[in-house]
Amino acid sequence: MQTWFPDFFDRHGALTVFDLLKDYLESGRIKVDRSKNPQKAAYHDPCNYGRKSLELFGKGYFDEPRWIMDQCMSNWVDLFPCRGNQYCCGGGGGTLLTPYKQERIHYSRKKFEQIRRAGVEMIVVPCHSCHGQLRAMAKEFDMPDLEVKYLWQVVAEALVIET
């Protein structure tokens, strides 16, 4: 967008998923109850929102999703390593669309070592590739009950509906 359509920003604003969720929560436009999400969960940093965004645009989205997790989850932990040094889920860069499944399983072992160490029953991600890969790999790594949810899904599930 910045490269090909720089004048776009003279006419419109653009918001990331984190900007939106944070704005709704901070301004009180939505209310959430973190006790609705009691599962022990971990947040996974997608490469593109974190490390690569930091490298390419000078800003990595590390703190925003964690703040959102704090609002919506009552029991969550970080994986180690995380943030800039995290391990990729193994499905990035379009590899999820290639026929190389055995290679993808091998790649994911690092992620699943991390998940096992953290002892969580849920992984929260803000990325469709990570979601697809982790869900498929949970079966391969003998963790069929591991829940994989979108960040906006746990927000939606914690929403307080005033009637």
Partner: peptide, 16 residues
């Protein structure tokens, strides 16, 4: 080769 397609372009390598 298959090599470019095995990479997930996660950038852990270049970050380090």
């Amino acid at each position: 080769s298959k090599l470019p397609w095995l990479c997930t372009m996660c950038a852990k390598c270049e970050y380090a």
